[in-house]
């Protein structure tokens, strides 16, 4: 579904060059959920943003659904992958009602839309249809994140890119959102690429986990590896030890 070959991201400012992502290869099969863990600045979010075309300055080869992608994305390219952002407060237009937030993608993509379609999208993420009249500031963080997921899903992309979708949320709300994401994946056979700093979240959601450090993948883990806290690369092992700190003590 996603094939990335020899992928590099470099930012140049004057004479200094910042090599953020260094020659990555990544393949994600249809219906798979792959997680990327790493610390701030390791390049995991940059990779995601390049995939959807929010960031330029990358070199290499990106293929989604068999189609090679360039720097400029057409509507067909955009329809194949949508993204859910970290901050539920910044990701909704503050002056648009929820109904508008959900009908805008349909309108921009030239898809038929109706109040029923919006209501169905809200229902799919566990919100009542009456929320269409509300403004984002009248919603809690978890509810906004549900709207953001509904907005990403409304144009029915086969791939969802999740950039720290729950790290701004409370634990109990995080559980609700993660359950919602699992349910939608089971239902629609979606492909997920989940980026997070939280090993526990990634281990819960994903079939495969890639550990990223300084712009490269240093290790590939399965949930079983994490359950047994076994890794071969020292950084992956360290990350695992400190993430599961509570269990060690």
């Amino acid at each position: 579904m996603i094939r990335i070959r020899d992928f590099n991201v470099r930012y140049r400012s004057g004479k200094t060059e910042n090599h953020v992502v260094r020659g990555i290869d990544l393949t994600v099969a249809q219906g798979e959920c792959v997680g990327i863990v790493g610390e701030s600045g390791c390049g995991k979010s940059t990779l995601l943003r390049c995939l959807v075309g929010l960031e330029s300055g990358w070199t290499g080869n990106i293929e989604i659904d068999g189609q090679s992608l360039g720097a400029v994305r057409g509507k067909d390219d955009l329809r194949r992958a949508q993204m859910v952002f970290q901050d539920p407060f910044g990701s909704l237009h503050p002056r648009h009602r929820i109904g508008r937030a959900l009908s805008e993608p349909l309108r921009c993509m030239g898809l038929p839309g109706s109040p029923q379609r919006v209501a169905a999208a809200l229902k799919e993420v566990g919100l009542p249809a009456s929320f269409a009249h509300r403004f984002p500031h009248q919603l809690s963080g978890g509810q906004r994140q549900r709207v953001a997921i509904a907005r990403a899903l409304i144009i029915e992309p086969p791939i969802l890119l999740l950039d720290e979708p729950t790290s701004a949320l409370d634990v109990s709300v995080q559980a609700e959102i993660l359950n919602l994401l699992s349910d939608r994946r089971d239902e629609r056979g979606l492909t997920y690429l989940l980026v997070s700093h939280d090993l526990a979240v990634v281990a819960h959601m994903c079939d495969r986990i890639l550990v990223m450090q300084n712009g490269v993948f240093v290790e590939e883990l399965t949930p079983d590896n994490i359950r047994l806290a076994k890794a071969t690369h020292p950084y992956a092992q360290h990350l695992m030890d400190v993430s599961l700190l509570s269990d060690a003590l």
């Binding site: 634990v171 109990s172 995080q174 559980a175 993660l178 090993l199 526990a200 979240v201 281990a203 819960h204 959601m205 949930p223 994490i226 359950r227 599961l244 269990d247």
Partner: peptide
């Protein structure tokens, strides 16, 4: 509610 890698659910 916290995901726990040692007890996958």
């Amino acid at each position: 509610a916290m995901p726990d890698p040692r007890h996958p659910v």
